[in-house]
Design a protein around this nucleic acid. Structure first.
Length: 743
RNA sequence: GCGCGCUUAGCUCAGUUGGUUAGAGCGACUGAUUUACACUCAGUAGGCCGGGAGUUCAAAUCUCUCAGCGCGCACCA
């Protein structure tokens, strides 16, 4: 027996060594020769952002994925879990910008695009290395030979190819549209990058000629020259659509035009409003409908433009009280409601209020029709006309993609129903440069410019590439197949795509899951994954969301050092059902450290008790005659174990990892250790030779089955103990066949 | 406004399709222990399963309703 067993389990000595053994065994990567005959199980790792270190939420997802992967590998599937990291464009750039300012009081413009990008690359590389190390510490059985990065060379080709194909199909277009502008980060944002915060603000009722209009933002009202009301509003029946009215406004007389539009809510305020199309989406849409003029009032830094007259150049925050003062002096303020609350769109990343602006940007059109040539999507035949929205809906509606838990389907549909075109261009430096080049038309300088879209730069002189980069989710959307070599038609792509499962947090259902379905649907005519398993958020003991700014993000490495990776994994899994938030506490991790030690000691007892020389000739417990009641009892234990195996297999197939983990814990401790081992003690010490053999054989059989069953959950300790077992020496537990009823 | 969750022991949470006496971990209490167990075992206390109504032979589980908490989306002049 190994001397190590005489001491308590020492994970610090064990884990790194075991991981190296696994890595060098080659079992993390798939066996190409056998691949064809076996069932395939593949997962693309949700690539962690290279913005920083991993937190408990990552550790949670990684554990669930590793459980699935190890379970399928043991069941003989050709298994691929493909690792990678995400460049996380805005997030990473923002962090590096902050670091640069903190360290050197410099901005990115001070050091220039090239130097800045070099420092972002260094930062990414550093974090990448930390992240990879953390993933290995957790025990994840990833195929490192296939590691990818959303911004590396191969993925860059995929991104450009995707852009080009979507552009050619008319699904990507450039347009002057209203977008979300982050004045701090100086870039556009997609609708999904906003959060809404409730804000209490005075609501002003202003005299606008014969009308009273309400506004919470008087500083945007300078250029207002349209007054809009519902066509059915009887109060305004005497005004007709298109009627011109002269009136006195903030900076003097203006001529207002009456517009009747049924989008107006008769009940709200006075039922009449003026519009600011440049800085409000609803107003923009009204202006588009009636072909009205639009004027910029606020510039990209938050200052008033020339339209504001004497207030021009002033920041809107400073200007507002002064404008109110002037309005009051002119007698234009009718009354003020001090108790008005509304939601303000805030940039999730910078925390600043987002200012809608009209800008020329690149968009993905979700409603444009295109012909899908080779469709594997249920309900959308090859050669038919479809839209990206339809693909996103049909794949889930038909059940071709299944969500676990399925309540997210409703949330997903609700999001699709409200989905607008996706703004994909960002005014930041870090990311995939938009693969579009422009050249002024030499013969007619005023006739605009030529456009070239392609994977490689255009030939000839005079071309300049678009300055902007792509939304990070554009490249992330390609992840399941860009990692497998697309656009080339590789063996990997054929074998592993669609992937079996996408495992991720429900908080990025829209950001990522939906975009992957969109991308895969258009570019491959196929689904990216068959199942989506959504885990909940890991919160701290007090139920707060883990975040770096709160300082409660919880360092998985610290917990692994203190209690071992297996203990951390179990603590994360037990009690954490699909889609539900869970809490992690140090106490819980400690409890599973005790469990690891229990497994360790039980194994020691079994190995101490058995007479290894007689083991070779031991009969199978199942085949023993049952005339002896004690042996019959042992056979009963084996039957009970069979039942457990069946249940656990079913739980794992049905994504009930938390239940499986709890059952295993309970069985091992309270059935195997407390009952079976205790009952066997008299047999081992004073039983007949037959009883002794039967006891030894059943203990060994149950133990080795337990190690197999526990392995996906607690890979390190089980692998280590397996190597001490008489029959375990030649093979690695990670590729042992999963127990079956007939074994 | 539309939609989705959660509410079970002092604390943190399980409870898969309705089916014995509702479970676990931590905590509390009482014992045991020259012990496979530094991290052990046996046991005890602690629950009108958020409130109310209904369906059913049977409800923590299904339906309706109310309340509190959380989340998503939309509106927000």
């Amino acid at each position: 027996m190994n001397d190590k067993l005489l001491r308590p389990y020492d994970w610090k000595e064990t884990e790194d060594r075991i991981y190296k053994t696994w890595e060098s065994s080659g079992y993390f990567t798939h066996d190409t020769d056998k691949a064809a005959e076996k069932e395939v199980f593949s997962i693309a790792l949700p690539p962690p952002n290279v913005t920083g270190e991993l937190h408990m939420g990552h550790a949670f997802g990684l554990t669930i994925e590793d459980i699935m992967v190890r379970f399928h590998r043991m069941r003989g599937f050709t298994t691929l879990w493909l690792p990678g990291t995400d460049h996380a464009a805005i997030a990473t750039q923002a962090r590096v910008e902050r670091l640069l300012y903190e360290k050197e009081q410099k901005t990115k413009k001070d050091i220039g695009r090239d130097v800045f990008l070099k420092s972002v690359d260094d930062f990414s590389q550093q974090n990448h290395d930390i992240i990879v190390n953390q993933i290995k510490k957790i025990g994840c059985s990833l195929d490192w030979t296939r590691e990818a990065f959303t911004l590396d060379e191969r993925r860059s080709i995929a991104v450009k190819e995707a852009f080009k194909r979507m552009f050619e199909a008319g699904l990507i277009y450039r347009g002057l549209r209203i977008v979300n502008w982050d004045p701090k980060l100086q870039t556009t944002l997609s609708d999904d990058e906003l959060v809404y915060k409730e804000e209490k603000t005075p609501f002003y009722y202003l005299k606008y000629g014969p009308f009273t209009i309400g506004t919470a933002r008087p500083e945007t009202k300078f250029g207002d020259k349209y007054v809009v009301m519902h066509p059915d509003d009887k109060r305004y029946a005497r005004f007709s659509h298109g009627q011109k009215i002269s009136l006195e406004w903030i900076n003097g007389p203006v001529t207002a035009t009456v517009i009747k539009d049924s989008s107006i809510d008769i009940e709200f305020g006075t039922g009449a409003m003026t519009i600011t199309p440049w800085h409000d989406r609803t107003d923009f849409e009204i202006a588009e409908r009636h072909n009205l003029e639009k004027e910029q009032i606020i510039d990209l830094t938050g200052k008033l433009t020339g339209v504001a007259g004497e207030f021009a150049g002033m920041h809107i925050k400073k200007a507002r009280p002064l404008i109110i003062e002037k309005l009051k002096a002119k007698g234009l303020v009718e009354r003020v409601d001090e108790h008005y609350t509304h939601n303000v769109a805030v940039s999730e990343r910078s925390g600043k209020t987002v200012e809608p602006q009209i800008l020329r940007q690149w968009f993905v059109s979700v409603n444009s029709k295109f012909r899908i040539e080779n469709s594997k999507i249920d309900g959308i035949p090859s050669g038919s006309d479809t839209t990206l929205k339809e693909i996103m809906r049909k794949t889930v509606e038909s059940g071709q993609i299944q969500m676990i838990p399925d309540r997210f389907v409703k949330i997903y549909f609700h999001w699709i129903d409200n989905l607008r075109d996706w703004c994909i261009s960002r005014q930041i430096w870090y990311g995939h440069r938009i693969p579009v080049w422009y050249r002024p038309k030499a013969d007619q300088p005023r006739a605009g410019e030529e456009i070239y879209v392609g994977v490689t730069p255009p030939a000839g002189a005079g071309w300049t590439q678009d300055e902007d980069t792509l939304d990070t989710w554009f490249s992330a959307g390609l992840w399941t197949f860009s990692t497998l070599g697309w656009p080339e038609e590789t063996d990997d792509l054929r074998l592993f795509h669609p992937t079996s499962v996408l495992e991720t947090g429900y908080d990025i259902l829209f950001f990522w899951v939906a975009r992957m379905i969109l991308m895969s649907g258009f570019l491959l005519g196929d689904i990216p994954f068959r199942k989506v398993y959504l885990h909940g958020l890991v919160r701290d003991e007090r139920g707060q969301k883990l975040s770096k700014s709160l300082g409660n993000a919880g360092d998985p490495l610290a917990m692994i050092t203190k209690y071992g990776a297996d203990a951390l994994r179990m603590a994360l899994i037990v009690g954490a059902g699909a889609g539900n938030d869970s809490k992690i506490s140090e106490e819980k991790i400690k409890a599973y450290k005790h469990f690891a030690n229990k497994i360790w000691n039980a194994t020691r007892f079994v190995l101490e008790s058995i007479n290894s020389t007689s083991l070779q000739s031991l009969p199978q417990v199942r085949e023993l005659s049952s005339s002896n009641p004690r042996i019959a009892a042992l056979k009963n234990h084996i039957a009970e174990l069979d039942l457990l195996v069946a249940e656990l297999t079913n739980d794992l197939e049905s994504f009930r990892f938390h239940l499986a983990a709890e059952k295993l814990y309970h069985y091992f401790w309270h059935t195997f250790a407390d009952k079976i081992i205790e009952e066997s003690k008299p047999h081992l010490k004073g039983g007949s030779p037959e009883e002794r053999f039967a006891a030894e054989a059943s203990l060994l059989e149950i133990l080795s089955s337990c190690l197999k069953l526990l392995h996906p959950f607690m890979p390190f300790i089980t692998e280590e103990l397996w190597s001490y077992l008489p029959k375990g020496r030649q093979t690695l537990l990670m590729v042992e066949p999963w127990p079956t009823l007939s074994s």
